[in-house]
Design a protein around this nucleic acid. Structure first.
Lengths: 216, 216
DNA sequence: GTCTATAAAAGGATAGAC
DNA sequence: GTCTATCCTTTTATAGAC
């Protein structure tokens, strides 16, 4: 055989790393596609194995059971949720622009097909996987609110706007952005929200929010 | 036999009504419970038959197939959605009170366990049953927005408030009411929203809405 | 680690008696 | 109309060879 050479000196420290190369990663990618598209119940392990170009037994070797595979996929996806909802790196002196920029990123992230599919999946399986629902909530809505509340506190201290409760105000801000587009997207009624719709929503929300939190 | 008497004179006009008594209604009630609690995929026809105290064949005699039964249940539930989101019968001169009253009914209806479970179900199955998603949207969110937009138009004509787009304003109003409680309820994180939370949400939303639509 | 083949169970739908 | 009993497909999970 070509690989007949023994390798007794292979470093063990890198051995217990699970390299995301090869079959394992292929299974993860395939499972993500199948679960997000078909849902937990309708996704079969056969379909995932076929999509990954692997055998079913290989899938079971890596993840043990269907629910464990599902949890691994969803937890991984949740980790990618936080990035877009941090405040702009440069919280410009123009707070209206900063809020509008945050709003744009929030709406775009929220309506991104992958994130919307993830949200649907977590909602549908929240009874069976309550821990995943918690993980999603923390990584998405909760993180967004906490970040914005911090920024609002700065603005309030500077007298730029008025808020009795930064957390409640931050929640209101994001609530305004979950408009009719959001409901229709949840229900799968619109495949695409146009850029114009999103921009109109952002302007309406920022404007109303500032009117409701005018200083003095 | 005791019922040997022939009944040739029985009125036929009442004969083709499907009386909701007996097994059929029992099946409908049982299917609603099982579907709303378990979801479409995890609900088995065996479980529905058992819950109804009927045999599986009787269920199939009445509804033909699982998807038809599901559609019948969900469509029936959607019809009950519209009532609470009509404007108050007496649109008082005090528009703030009228809006607050509408908001209270909207939030209570939205968070009612049955309606929330229905919403989750429709979201989860929107890919398989797009017509049901449309029916839900029309009976719920769309009806609410249209009713409120009519009222806002009256208020704008009377100079009580300012709005460039009554539909957009109505959507903003309801969006504000779909706050953090709503997301947590969708994700099944809170079983109960307290009355105090709901009231705080209503006050915040009405206050912000009026500030953003102040006259002149 | 990866594959082929199979076990074991669950669930949707139907047949036929009463 | 309603029931009992059954068919058949799909699906999760495992056994055993390479």
């Amino acid at each position: 055989m070509a690989k007949a050479t023994a390798k007794p000196a292979e470093p063990v420290t890198t051995d217990d790393r699970q390299p995301p190369t090869g079959k394992r990663q292929a299974i993860i990618d395939a499972a993500a596609r199948v679960f997000l598209q078909a849902g937990y119940g309708a996704a079969s392990m056969d379909a995932i194995a076929a999509e990954a170009g692997a055998s079913k037994q290989t899938v079971y070797s890596h993840f043990g059971a269907k629910d464990a595979l599902f949890a691994a996929i969803v937890e991984g996806k949740c980790e990618d949720l936080m990035a877009p909802v941090a405040m702009p790196a440069v919280p410009a002196r123009d707070h209206e622009k900063a809020l509008a920029e945050l709003a744009r990123r929030f709406v775009a992230s929220m309506l991104a097909p992958g994130n919307m599919a993830l949200f649907r999946l977590v909602i549908a399986e929240s009874a069976r996987f309550p821990e995943l629902a918690r993980a999603f909530y923390r990584a998405g809505p909760l993180t967004a609110v906490e970040n914005l509340a911090g920024y609002l506190t700065e603005l309030a201290d500077a007298g730029t706007l008025t808020t009795g409760d930064p957390i409640a105000s931050a929640r209101l801000f994001f609530s305004m952005l979950r408009g009719d587009i959001y409901i229709r997207a949840l229900l799968g009624l619109d495949e695409t929200a146009t850029a114009a719709e999103m921009e109109a929503l952002v302007r309406q929300a920022v404007s109303a929010f500032l009117a409701a939190h005018a200083p003095k």
